[in-house]
Design a protein around this nucleic acid. Structure first.
Lengths: 108, 108
DNA sequence: CCCTTCCGTAAGCAGTAACTTACGCTTTGT
DNA sequence: ACAAAGCGTAAGTTACTGCTTACGGAAGGG
C-alpha cells in the first residue's frame, strides 16, 4: 500500500484499465455503470479498480449499496514526476546530439 | 510504426525496460554496455530496445559495429500529453469533490 | 423480515510476455 | 583473408495476467 511508482505504471499499462481510469477521471462512477459501458464483465471491472486503487490512482466513496469510484491525484502525481524526469533528461541529451555540445560528462 | 500511444504505456510498464530507458535517457549507450549494467542477458536488452524503438521512445545510431541507443522525445511527448489530460480531468473533478461545486454536467 | 440490488473474492483457464540459449550476419583490425 | 567483436532474431520455456463463471456478504425497499 506504499504508493509504489511501479504499480502506477503497470496499472495504466492495460488498455481496459486505462479506459476505466479515463472515464472515472472525467466523472466518478459506480462499478456497475462502468461495466455497462465496457465490453467486460462486472467482476473484471472490480478487479481492475482494485489494481488502480492499490496504485493510489482511484478512491472509493460508499453511496448506499453503490461504490462510487473517483480519480485520485496522488497516484498520478508520482507518475508525472518520473515522466518529467525522463523528459528533461531526454531533452538535455537530445540537445547535445543536435548541437554537438556535450557539457556535463559527470552524469551516469 | 504509427507511434501508438498504447505502445508507449506498455513499453514503460516493464521495470527492466523502464530502467533501460532511464539509463539511455541520461546518456546514450550501446547494447552490450546496457547488458553489462543490468541483470539480464544481451539478447534480452536487444529485445527490450526493440519494443522501446517501436514506441518511438529511443533512436539508434551506428558507430562502427556498435549501436548507440538514445532517448527519443517523440514517444515521450504523446505520453506526456495523455497524462496531462488525465491530470487536468482528475484535478477538476477533485475540486468538485472538495468544494461540492459541480459546474459542467454535460461531460461524459 | 424477505427480496432485490450492488459489490468483492475465489477458482480456473487461455493468452501473452520476459527470459534464456543457439545461431547467423555485419563491421573492424591484423 | 581470417579472426574477433557487436547485434539481432529464432525457438522454447516459465510465469504472470486478464477474463469468465460461481458464490457470499452488506445495504436499502416493500
Amino acid at each position: 500500500m506504499t504508493t509504489d511508482v511501479a504499480d502506477a505504471w503497470t496499472a495504466l499499462a492495460d488498455p481496459t484499465r486505462r479506459e476505466i481510469f479515463a472515464r472515472v477521471a472525467r466523472r466518478p462512477r459506480s462499478v456497475t455503470d462502468l461495466a455497462g459501458e465496457l465490453p467486460v464483465s462486472r467482476p473484471a471491472v472490480s478487479q481492475h479498480l482494485r489494481v488502480l486503487k492499490d496504485a493510489a490512482l482511484v478512491r472509493v466513496r460508499a453511496e448506499g449499496t453503490r461504490r462510487i469510484y473517483s480519480a485520485d491525484p496522488a497516484g498520478l502525481q508520482v507518475l508525472r514526476a518520473e515522466l518529467e524526469g525522463f523528459w528533461s533528461a531526454t531533452l538535455a541529451n537530445f540537445k547535445e546530439l543536435v548541437e554537438g555540445e556535450p557539457e556535463d560528462r559527470s552524469t551516469t
